[in-house]
Design a protein around this nucleic acid. Structure first.
Lengths: 181, 181
DNA sequence: TCCTGCGCTAAGCGCTTGCTTAGCAGGTAA
DNA sequence: TTACCTGCTAAGCAAGCGCTTAGCGCAGGA
């Protein structure tokens, strides 16, 4: 699975052959099928666990406080750190959805909707308590998620910023976006 | 080329066969090779013209004013509208870079650096004139681009918002992010 | 000592891939 | 009329694809 993550992230699902994965894992191509039903099933398992982790990251962060401002700081920080540190896995999570079977895609899409719902609820709670000011909480929530997701696209391990540095700055940007700075 | 854009955006470069493109264009597979050297060359041409367009969108917007605040509004608005209206092409521009040959990738990467430079210069001008306040102009510029780029990922033609509505809200978010709201 | 089950490999099957070849219809020009 | 383009197709080649089959070495239990 680690070899598959590496390869899918670098070359995409369709750009990766089962032989690539097998040799990355130091095995013969046939050995894959002892552990996994198909190449698509491997992608699904990776996507499944990645999405579960992303949702957990968001929910755990929300649970650290009851103050919307603190919750937003925690969520954006954790979400950004996750997308930077695990950019390899996060690339598959966010950019290889089209290769999933219709049934698998629907299951994954449900988790994505839950993540979006968490962020939307958070922004709306802040607006309701007067902590935040934004004319469109739904679109603002989407923009906050975009910021984190896109980190997985451009982040490089050898880059000049650490995941924490990026997360710190992005948390500040998030406060500004919701009018809480 | 239109058929290739459609197919690459929907299924990715490696997920698209030359037969897919040919039948999308109502031709035989061999007819592609009358007009294009290879499948990768087709991708390169699409990526090339898409990147040229993106850079032009940014530069044209910057040229509409001399005031950093107005320039930021114009750039973010135009950049977001482009990524929403041409989300099909923009998906290839942003997410199919790995399929390019090393030489083609380097050429494209140069244009991407120019786009980033435009945004960085703009934010820095705003900070210099006192119109903007941000502790890290470079990272803020990256975040502003992220916002636009990620629109291409999630935008759907049948969605509830028009490109202009999204661009209006995102322009406001941009002002907040640079501390100019 | 023998047996069973597990993790694995060598070989290969049927199919699809990117791309090439040979050739053909129809328009243009001398 | 003849010659030559241009834009296309039918057919197919070599290579690579996802996945299967048959079988092998070895650890653990009876």
């Amino acid at each position: 699975m680690a070899a598959a993550v590496e390869s899918f992230a670098a070359k995409g699902f369709h750009g990766t052959s089962t032989r690539d994965i097998a040799s990355g894992a130091g095995m013969s191509p046939a050995a894959l099928y002892v552990h996994h039903r198909s190449k698509e099933d491997l992608l699904f398992q990776i996507s499944r666990s990645g999405h579960d982790r992303a949702l957990a990251v968001v929910r755990d962060a929300v649970a650290t406080s009851r103050d919307p401002r603190e919750q937003l700081l925690a969520v954006v920080h954790a979400f950004v750190v996750y997308h930077a540190e695990d950019h390899t896995g996060a690339r598959i999570v966010n950019y290889e959805l089209a290769a999933l079977s219709p049934e698998h895609l629907e299951e994954i899409a449900a988790t994505r909707r839950q993540i979006e719902q968490e962020m939307r609820d958070l922004v709306e709670r802040g607006v309701a308590t007067g902590a935040f000011t934004t004319p469109n909480p739904e679109m603002t929530a989407l923009a906050l998620l975009s910021l984190g997701i896109d980190v997985a696209r451009w982040y490089r391990d050898e880059g000049e910023w650490t995941p924490t540095q990026i997360a710190d700055h992005y948390s500040d940007l998030a406060l500004r976006m919701v009018g809480a700075a």
